[in-house]
Nucleic acid binder design. Sequence first.
DNA 1: ACAGGTGTTTACATCGATGTAAATCTCATG
DNA 2: CATGAGATTTACATCGATGTAAACACCTGT
Lengths: 337, 337
Amino acid sequence: MAARPRLKDVAEYAGVSPKTVSNVINDFEHVSEQTRAAVREAIDALGYRVNIAGRQLRQGRTGMITLVVPELDVAYFSELAKHVMAEADRRGRTVLLHQTGAVRQRELAALRGFDTQFSDGLILSPLALLPHDLATRDRRLPVVLLGERSVEGSTDHVGIDNTRAARDATEHLLARGRRRIAVIGGAVRGRQGTDRLRTDGYREALKAAGLPFDAGLVVPVEAYHWQDGARAATALMERATPPDALLCLNDHMALGALRALHELGRSVPDDLDVVGFDDIEASRFSVPSLTTVAPDKQEIARAAVSLLLERIDDPDGGPLQDHVAGHQVIVRESSGG
Amino acid sequence: MAARPRLKDVAEYAGVSPKTVSNVINDFEHVSEQTRAAVREAIDALGYRVNIAGRQLRQGRTGMITLVVPELDVAYFSELAKHVMAEADRRGRTVLLHQTGAVRQRELAALRGFDTQFSDGLILSPLALLPHDLATRDRRLPVVLLGERSVEGSTDHVGIDNTRAARDATEHLLARGRRRIAVIGGAVRGRQGTDRLRTDGYREALKAAGLPFDAGLVVPVEAYHWQDGARAATALMERATPPDALLCLNDHMALGALRALHELGRSVPDDLDVVGFDDIEASRFSVPSLTTVAPDKQEIARAAVSLLLERIDDPDGGPLQDHVAGHQVIVRESSGG
DNA sequence: ACAGGTGTTTACATCGATGTAAATCTCATG
DNA sequence: CATGAGATTTACATCGATGTAAACACCTGT
């Protein structure tokens, strides 16, 4: 096989001009049926595929969008990625995946379009990004933000009602009679992200139940990984008055906590309850299975892709949108379900 | 801010020709220190970033490679992705991630370079690909195959010694006195992938121990997911003479099996042993923790990136390579560790 | 002062596709 | 049969960067 065929080769083969071939490819309306058929045939015969670099150079579009997440080995993100790809597929787009390792520099680089040049737009799930970063971003690259809403009025946004979700989960534990509920991964003073919102929701639930807030029960962690949950749970249980429930701000930490509690000989949910966030697949299969707050990942993916495509088609179209996706508390064995 | 600056803008700002700027960017050696400094300053002043589409159009290279995996929510792949990205980073390349959903058409599309045009080469972990597909691939796109080696002499390849690995795992179970070892996800007649190799290894171990092979203990599954493991384990335990050990060909299935056994009231490892493959993070935290065959993911990633970059730099360089990465059986609670 | 060499810089064409605008064709109407 | 509206097709320039090859600068030795 020779070199990859170009548009020009197709044109010669079909006996028309290159531009006509381009018109066929792009479904331009004024092309005769006859010509269209001839071009199609030539395309098939030569196995022609449009060169995206050439196209992008000319028209600045690639038909691809990029999903930027902190870490794909955090199951929530890989599950979300699956939904986003499915939705993009339905809309005729291709998704490129980019992971930043939760490194601010990399999130910035994505925003600046360094590693993301082939993309018409970004769906970005930030972890380390500062509000200021978003303000200074390149406005020519449409961005939809997931999760926390860093800066009002800067980009479209999709997320769940984090405060409400944490409140729901806390109320579930309170309804079961739990009174000393620890928050693993909770926000200390100064934090601004979803951890802050969720911690607020936890406090709201306590207040509504007339219970005092004990800052000592809010345990910040380094990252939202298995071992962080295990470590925090162990430390909590070694206290003089250990908690009777653990509200973990993601499932990985909750599963790590379950393991730690097992090693300490505590029984879940007999001795204490454990609740997570995200509803990753592992949570259905753990022993005990994990009660968790399930964000509607499909809704999030659909809304994010929709908003992004709208923004790409019309960068100045309408006001910024903020889509609040649904969530629900799924009660499983770890809290008596 | 106006439109994105081009090479030409930098050239004008620095008072040199565009080509000189290009020379600076690409570290061409014959550029005077003075000119180089002036150009660097202009680049900084304008915030110039090279346009990869333009570059690719001209020189056919992007400096990016693509990792194509079946499903990122299979933890083995997301963990591998992390290693590949780290290694690529070390080598100054950017990795694009592409998931196929284990759909053959998508794997083919990747091989044909449809969704992968921005890539100088592919690291492909196939699931549904047929040997014939590889033979008809576009030879201009360097490819390194992971996992099974579909077709001899077609691409470079990196993987572990699957037969040996399964044999090691089986021998571990035999050494613990297990005699009825089931293989979940094992290969039936006609299959060719890693499942075949691993099933062969299992048989070798039985043979070496002088034990008969019972085809009824090899249970094929639809996919390598949690629920497949749970379902297969349940079915096996309902038999008249249930197995005394489960060799699951990945960790997800093994964890699903652990859950199913818990529901059936069987104790692991007292009643029976469970062993997995892949050593995903969840396996360290399950209850009981999971004995598993750990492939050296870092070695796999390094070898794959190295081989690919060599092939990109010199497409006709030397014979095809086949790197066999290390593995080890990590004994945890699920088999008495 | 000049040929010849090394080192530095530049003009120009080109990669592949498509927007613009003009050329050409078709057909109904007067 | 001429005319014009509309449909179809095409020539040409262009997006941004870089390979080629030639031009230019500077230095050495005679």
